[in-house]
Design a protein around this nucleic acid. Structure first.
Length: 581
RNA sequence: GGCCCCGUAGCUCAACGGAUAGAGCGUCCCCCUCCUAAGGGGAAGGUUGCAGGUUCAAGUCCUGCCGGGGUCGCCA
């Protein structure tokens, strides 16, 4: 149930009727007609821009359209008022019974209230995290993981068929470095002193890998040349790192549906096939790239490389897929990987990258555009940096990794729920400050607490009512007589609930889960306001002594707020708090 | 130099192309014999970096500047 789309349908139907009655020209495009909440509640409950949008194509005065439309709309029992205002807005007031019905509807549908069919069951692939299997996840990965998971939940809620996917970058030189680093830890486990040379990974997290290698191979790898052990140690270590990463993700409550391996693409012909497909389109050629303008590297030498004509699909320069020695660049297997996703039948692809991969966006979009014939859209969300603070001071220490703060450090200190919520209180492309003290603070400048507190208060009311002998189960509340919910403050609360389904669609359309977090903050704010009005005006308290039916109506409203908070927190992957003590 | 992101109140940030640009913090005033005051109400605070353009309507879209960050062929 989405009141805004219901009323928009009514507006569209009325406009269509006006066209067939000759009040409007036939064949007008109504796509731009919107029904939205007005900025100022004094204007009414909803506003439509229909008259302004149609004035020019209809060659009519906006007021004339608006007035005729108003007359039509007034015939509908849901509409209590329709006034032309401003430059041609039509402000609508709805029958109060609508809001009471909305509260009932929330209770009947539970957290499914707000679900949408916007996605129409289309298959979307959300690729996120995709951290190299060379160590534990750090803070930057954490934000990407939370964002990707929340986006996946949001899209599922809005009607998409979602696959969460992790692309394991285990095909490049970095896993060889991992193997060499692990080998030194293996030597250490064998009683020798490790040589952590420049360029190797120094973190303590490889010590258990070295020990595991010793348990598996004994001392048989000692004194062997790298060519003998590299392959096995690489596989062994990267598998252990992936186990570690899966564990880290589990700490956050993130579950992937599919893990795809870069390495597995090699030797299968998939990379060659993807490049050949592009070649067949005339998009692969041998050429020499221009040096970057204005900042030519010292050692720049023109060299012939195999290039992808990404400029044919919106990129600024063509991009190499092969190094001069003939081996693939990172881009080549990534093309094959995205080709694979297209071939698996996804209707849309979403990649979540770190902001340092911004330069990679256009070429990846170009590749997908070419390989899918423009059929499959690829949206790439760049996740900006997280700056850590403690007591307002920058915070950099890590217990385990030495050089970076791990996901585990963050979750152990802040908890998964707080970490997730806070990471979603900024747009993905804005930097985020994460202060370990602030996020655990119990006050209203901490949005996590503020939202949880609202829900805890509602649960407190439910407990008290139950203790007072008032039935407050959802079925009873949904069947209660809600006609007493007429106070302006109560209706305002209900109106905020009405925006939830609309908010879900906006957030899903833009791939912006942070909107859910902001909405929940506003919803909580309205609830705290209503709660406090009960301090001054006892008629606004949820529990009315000795008046079971009245209490149930008011508690139904509170419970509906809780339902929507739970639905929203569910999208963020945060557990609702029953109480705050 | 090219490309990408950002620029909104003193600070941190919102705003699906819609009306008088909103919150929190900080400052000032006020509200607990009463469901959790861990909260709420009010005041003050703005030329949305600058200049053009498109539009009935621009913080939002386009162009050009300014400032900050990122990135730019054998790293992934």
């Amino acid at each position: 149930m989405n009141l805004f789309s219901d009323i928009r349908e009514l507006v569209i139907a009325s406009l269509t009727a006006m066209a067939s009655d000759g009040q409007l020209p036939a064949g007008l495009d109504l796509a731009a007609v919107a029904v939205e909440p007005p900025r100022d509640a004094a204007h009414g409950d909803m506003a439509t821009n229909a008259a302004m949008v149609l004035a020019k194509p209809a060659a009519m005065a906006p007021r004339a359209i608006a007035e005729a439309l108003a007359a039509r709309l007034m015939a509908d029992p849901r509409i209590a008022g329709a006034d032309v205002a401003g430059p041609g807005f039509l402000n609508l007031r709805l029958n109060p019974g609508i809001w009471q019905g909305l509260v009932r509807s929330v209770l009947v549908q539970g957290t499914a209230y707000g679900r949408s069919n916007l996605g129409a069951g289309l298959k979307v692939n959300v690729e996120f995290v995709s951290a190299n299997p060379t160590g534990p996840m750090h803070v930057g990965h954490t934000r990407g993981a939370v964002f990707g998971d929340a986006l996946a939940r949001l899209l599922a809620y809005a009607g998409w068929n979602v696959t969460r996917e992790y692309y394991i970058n285990d095909g490049g030189a970095q896993v060889d470095v991992l193997a060499r680093s692990a080998y030194e830890r293996y030597r250490e486990a064998c009683g020798l002193s490790p040589e952590i040379r420049e360029g190797l990974y120094p973190g303590d997290y490889l010590i258990p890998v070295g020990e595991a290698l010793k348990a598996r191979y004994g001392t048989s790898l000692l004194e062997q040349p790298e060519s003998v052990w590299l392959h096995d140690v690489r596989d062994f270590a990267s598998q252990m790192m992936m186990e570690e990463i899966r564990g880290d993700l589990a700490l956050l409550g993130v579950q992937m549906d599919v893990y795809s391996s870069e390495k597995a693409l090699y030797g299968t012909g998939e990379i060659e096939a993807a490049i050949d497909t592009l070649r067949g389109m005339g998009l692969i050629y041998e050429g020499v790239l221009e040096p970057p303008k204005g900042k030519e590297p010292e050692d720049w030498e023109p060299r012939v490389q195999t290039l992808f004509r990404s400029t044919a699909h919106g990129d600024d320069v063509d991009r190499p897929v092969q190094k001069s020695d003939g081996s693939w660049t990172y881009f080549a297997p990534d093309i094959a990987y995205h080709h694979n996703k297209v071939k698996r039948g996804f209707d849309a692809l979403i990649d979540i990258f770190g902001a340092d991969h911004g330069g990679y966006v256009k070429r990846m979009k170009a590749a997908v555009s070419a390989l899918s014939g423009g059929r499959v859209p690829l949206d790439i969300k760049l996740i900006q940096l997280v700056k850590l603070f403690k007591n307002g001071e920058p915070f950099k220490m890590s217990k385990r990794a030495g050089t970076f703060v791990t996901l585990r450090d963050v979750v152990e200190q802040a908890g998964a729920d707080v970490t997730r919520f806070v990471m979603l209180t900024r747009k993905n492309d804005a930097p985020l400050d994460f202060d370990f003290d602030k996020v655990l603070e119990q006050s209203k400048d901490n949005p996590v607490f503020y939202v949880q507190y609202a829900n805890a208060r509602i649960n407190s009311v439910l407990r008290k009512a139950h203790d007072a002998g008032i039935a407050v189960d959802d079925a009873t509340l949904a069947a209660a007589d809600l006609s007493g919910l007429t106070h302006e403050a109560e209706l305002k609360m209900a109106k905020q609930l009405a925006e939830w389904p609309r908010l879900v669609e906006i957030a899903a359309r833009n791939n912006e889960p942070h909107r859910v977090a902001f909405y929940l903050y506003e919803l909580a704010s309205d609830f705290h306001g209503l709660w406090n009005r009960g301090n001054d005006d006892t008629a606004l308290r949820f529990i009315q002594e000795g008046e079971t039916a009245t209490s149930q109506a008011k508690i139904a409203l509170a419970r509906a707020v809780s339902v929507v908070i739970c639905a929203g927190l569910g999208i963020l992957g945060v557990t609702p708090a029953e109480e705050m003590r």
